[in-house]
């Protein structure tokens, strides 16, 4: 793929046409203008998202101040009191649970696909990954609500309850709660992390692997010594991309998290996440302050997702770019 790229990637100098060919010249200019406009549109979309969200959020931020808003623990639309902390907490807890569960499985999946799987089953595994990614989140939410939640309530949470010396596993097994949301998010971000990890592992030069094998390493040792260290930054980037998706995932979390703005150390307790409260209250919010507070939550989400994605892309590029430079 990279080889094909390198042969076509230098752009062809677009001849600004000889002074005589006026017709061709104007057609080229219109076309170039249209293309550039589409390119500018992308930058514009970014600005638009930032500006519109910030502008809608202004009334709420002006009232409480950014810091006051972030650290506020109460959310009471009736009395116009808005604090973001319970939602930030819920988002953090569910995302951490999701990452802890999803990263090992996703990376192992990617290693299996790239390093161990017989070449015929590779396309099947890819298909599984694509299928997992293509199921809409509301369908995952539906499944979570009627399959995962009862499963957690009846089997998993009572079993984990034995470890109740840890504050994580205290309280009644309700099923709905931060644990359910975390598990569901883990399933949903799995294909993201796995597919980026596959992309990263595939760029590991086969000479590295062969060198390790030639020195007598087992297949696993070749992965551990050669492939994983080479791709480490990229796999970390993949995990960050997954984290970014988990933070912003709305429907699935909304349907199983319990929707109650509490801050609890227990994973069994219901919680509330940033996207869920926006999804639940936005269409019914009428006062500018309420809408502003919800938009401010969205702004927090946007900024965090932006930072995570920028970091992740830079990390993945560091690995994949290294490959493309060395192969061209």
């Amino acid at each position: 793929m990279a080889a094909a790229n390198s042969s076509t990637s230098e752009s062809i100098p677009v001849t600004p046409a000889a002074p005589g060919g006026r017709r061709a010249f104007s057609g080229d200019r219109v076309y170039a203008g249209a293309l550039a406009a589409a390119g500018i549109a992308i930058l514009l979309v970014a600005l638009l998202i930032a500006a519109t969200t910030a502008n809608t959020a202004r009334p709420a931020l002006a009232r409480a101040g950014l810091w006051g808003f972030i650290t506020g623990r109460d959310w009471n639309p009736v009395e116009d009191i808005y604090g973001a902390l319970p939602f930030i907490w819920g988002t953090l807890v569910t995302s951490v649970v999701a990452i802890v569960l999803a990263v090992p499985v996703a990376v192992a999946f990617a290693i299996f696909l790239v390093e161990f799987a017989p070449s015929r089953s590779r396309s099947l595994l890819r298909f599984v990954m694509e299928l997992l990614a293509s199921i809409p989140s509301v369908v995952y939410g539906l499944w979570g609500l009627f399959v995962l939640v009862p499963l957690l309530r009846e089997h998993v949470e009572p079993a984990l309850g034995r470890f109740s010396f840890l504050p994580l596993f205290r309280g009644a097994p309700l099923g709905v709660g931060t644990l359910a949301a975390g598990v569901l998010l883990a399933i949903m971000i799995l294909p993201t992390i796995a597919s980026v990890s596959v992309e990263v592992l595939r760029t590991v030069p086969s000479t590295l692997r062969e060198g390790a094998l030639a020195l007598g390493a087992t297949r696993w040792e070749a992965v551990r010594i050669a492939a994983l260290p080479y791709g480490r930054a990229g796999i970390f980037g993949a995990a960050l991309l997954g984290l970014g998706r988990a933070l912003g995932e709305t429907m699935a979390a909304t349907m199983v998290i319990g929707n109650s703005p509490e801050i609890s150390a227990s994973l069994f307790a219901p919680g509330y996440s940033l996207p869920s409260i926006i999804a639940n209250e936005f269409s019914e919010a009428t006062s500018a302050l309420h809408i502003g507070a919800l938009a401010a939550l969205g702004l927090i989400l946007f900024v965090v997702a932006l930072i995570l994605n920028i970091a992740a892309r830079l990390l993945v590029r560091a690995v994949v770019g290294k490959f493309e430079r060395s192969s061209s």
Binding site: G248, L301, A305
Partner: peptide, 16 residues
């Protein structure tokens, strides 16, 4: 920008 925007939560785009 296009790469990074692909990761923006869809709910934020709803607000926009």
């Amino acid at each position: 920008t296009a790469e990074v925007l692909s990761g923006v939560p869809s709910i934020v785009v709803g607000i926009v």
